[in-house]
Simulated assay, not measured.
Amino acid sequence: MIGLRYVYAVCRPFGTPLQAELTGVAGAPPGLLHHHGLVAVVSTVPEADFCEDALKAHLEDLDWLAATARAHQGVVDALTTVTTPLPLRLATVFRDDSAVRMMIESREDDFRRLLDRLHGRVEWGVKVYLEPEPAEPVAAVARPASGRDYLRSRRRHSHEQEERWQRAERFAHSLHERLAERAEEFRMHRPQNSALSGTPGQNVLNAAYLVPRAHSEEFVELVDRTKDEAPGMRVELTGPWAAYSFSGEETGSRPGTQSGTKPGAGAGTESGAGFGAEAGEGR
């Protein structure tokens, strides 16, 4: 079988071994490729599935994409327990080890600068949802006596909906301000579409926060304390993750993303392969 080199992340050398049973994309165990004092975490994948033409087709296959993303994520999660990895985009593939080394050399300064900035830090994701209104029992829905009553009822319902949304936005804004004070940086992602994500409720806040690992417990406790502050709201916390949202180019975040930083924000990384692709947000 002809194989290509799949790269999950770049990091500094670390002494703790990865889990012996860990498998990556296409079921292959990840290995470490050392070069110039950096480490590329790699595995071998079949060229038939990961050459440029095959990838273009596979990236339209949601089942294949989801399975590949889970395997990629599993390796990066394992790395996060032993070091600070700099994750590369999903399906970052090179012809051989020599090409991986060339990529490291071409971007060595950026990698070192980012790894210095992210050392000892993790990403936490926070989402706030406005819960769906409970459905009224059919028996409780009275038929309007007239067209005027019907319009009045519609206006009242619309007004109540607007008030609920405004309360949700105020709560999300207040929560974000408190969390941003505890984080070194943040990224505001686009709200998720509930029809696409399958998650109930309207997504009001979808943010990522870069937090020193040593302060993560305080950050989590702050989120937990807010969960009962606003009836009808649902707060979801995910993490700790590798700092995916903070590895973007210094020239700007991805389209539709706002960013906030304290002094020290740095540059980022892209896929090294000509046919790399990036997984969607979903953490």
Results as ranks from 00 to 15, higher is better:
2 I>W: 01
6 Y>Q: 07
6 Y>L: 12
8 Y>N: 12
13 P>H: 11
13 P>V: 10
18 L>P: 04
18 L>F: 06
23 T>S: 14
24 G>C: 13
24 G>N: 14
28 A>K: 13
31 G>E: 13
32 L>P: 02
32 L>S: 07
39 V>M: 10
40 A>Y: 12
40 A>H: 06
45 V>D: 14
47 E>M: 06
50 F>Y: 08
54 A>N: 05
57 A>D: 09
61 D>I: 00
62 L>G: 10
64 W>M: 05
68 T>D: 06
76 V>N: 10
76 V>P: 12
77 D>C: 08
84 T>H: 12
87 P>V: 10
96 D>A: 12
97 D>E: 15
99 A>T: 02
99 A>Y: 05
101 R>I: 00
103 M>G: 05
104 I>Y: 09
106 S>P: 01
110 D>W: 12
114 L>F: 03
117 R>N: 07
120 G>V: 09
120 G>L: 05
122 V>A: 12
124 W>Y: 06
126 V>R: 10
131 E>V: 00
133 E>N: 01
134 P>C: 06
134 P>L: 06
136 E>S: 13
140 A>P: 03
141 V>D: 06
143 R>W: 14
148 R>Q: 11
149 D>Q: 13
152 R>N: 14
153 S>I: 09
154 R>N: 06
156 R>G: 02
161 Q>F: 05
162 E>P: 00
163 E>K: 01
166 Q>H: 08
167 R>Q: 11
170 R>F: 15
172 A>L: 09
173 H>F: 12
174 S>E: 08
182 R>M: 03
183 A>G: 04
187 R>F: 05
189 H>M: 09
201 G>D: 01
202 Q>E: 14
204 V>W: 04
205 L>R: 01
212 P>D: 10
214 A>G: 03
216 S>G: 15
219 F>N: 10
222 L>F: 02
223 V>C: 08
225 R>G: 00
229 E>M: 11
231 P>S: 07
232 G>C: 09
239 G>C: 02
247 S>M: 13
254 R>F: 01
258 Q>P: 00
261 T>P: 00
262 K>S: 15
264 G>N: 08
265 A>R: 10
269 T>F: 11
269 T>I: 15
270 E>G: 04
273 A>Y: 14
276 G>Y: 12
277 A>R: 07
281 E>M: 07
